[in-house]
């Protein structure tokens, strides 16, 4: 296993880099005035990133497929949210669907 001081330096480097990433967007926004069209594109960009995060975390595990139980739970969440079911019920039903499917032996 890697030595303690190396680990501390690695954690600090990851933390500092991540903080810099978090800082970059708001800093740029406060210095530069974007035209309205660009602002709307940036907001769509966040939605696109979130959609990609949803797709990859729901459907993949490492570089393979995530099985059936997890995508099924997320799909149920999608249907319920589309029908404007309250957030709490959507999220808990997703977890419950996945948990029950796993209990039944579905991968």
């Amino acid at each position: 296993m890697t030595g303690s001081s190396t680990l501390v330096v690695a954690v600090l480097a990851l933390a500092a880099g991540t903080y810099a990433f978090r800082l970059a967007g708001p800093l740029l926004r406060s210095r530069v005035a974007f035209p309205p069209r660009a602002e709307r594109l940036l907001e769509t960009g966040a939605v696109v990133l979130l959609a990609a995060l949803i797709a990859t975390t729901a459907l993949t595990e490492g570089d393979g497929a995530a099985g059936v139980a997890r995508p099924a739970g997320v799909a149920v969440a999608g249907v319920l949210a589309w029908r404007r079911v309250p957030f709490l019920a959507v999220v808990l039903t997703a977890a419950a669907t996945t948990a029950v499917l796993r209990l039944l032996g579905v991968p």
């Binding site: 959609a51 997890r70 997320v74 996945t98 029950v100």
Partner: peptide
């Protein structure tokens, strides 16, 4: 406990209103 389904479900439930816009949905 199906916890791994919760993270994408949370994001999906919160991002869905934005996806009701056709152009945004297609891009996403």
């Amino acid at each position: 406990f199906g916890l791994d389904a919760m993270f994408p479900a949370v994001l999906l439930a919160l991002v869905l209103p934005a996806l009701r816009d056709r152009g945004t949905l297609r891009t996403a």
